[in-house]
Amino acid sequence: MMDFTRRKLAATAALAIVVFSVVAVRAEDASNGGVKLERLKWAGLQQRLANPNVKYTIVDAWSTTCGPCKENFPHVVEMNRKYAPKGLAVISLSLDDPTDKAAVNEAERFLKAHHAAFSNVLLDEEFGEGFDKLNINAIPAVFIFGPDGKEVKRFTMDDPKNQFTYKDVETFVAQLLASK
């Protein structure tokens, strides 16, 4: 009798643990909205940028080794929350070394922690090539593309006398969406 009760208790406990962990996993999924980091070649990214279903696409170029990028990432999340319903598609573009597993894992962890519920791309090209492709010296850098995939505007840190802030970006985006 004792034995049976114990077994039952043990079984119940085990079941509870299983149920609890399933719920916990689900809760985590829900909280990060299934955030994932997707590998794309430069050509694949270009295809993604031509998006006739939105008014504009904004791309935030960042990496896990870039302090200012990470500090400002909440602005990107906020722009998605505010402007996605108004026709803005948001893409985060990691320029981390795609062959560096630790960096890629860290990028994924960071995106999940920030609930980056939009397209998160890891540029799957030779490390460093993204800067040439985008024609920038440094990150963070933000780009805005029209529905045809053509660049409308870029914000960079490359000119010491004319560096952007994310406030500049948001002001520009708000005006752009209001005018179309």
Binding site: G67, F131, A138, P140, Q163
Partner: peptide
Amino acid sequence: TRPYGCGISYAK
């Protein structure tokens, strides 16, 4: 050539 490395932040 294109410089490679961290961006420099300048005070506004």
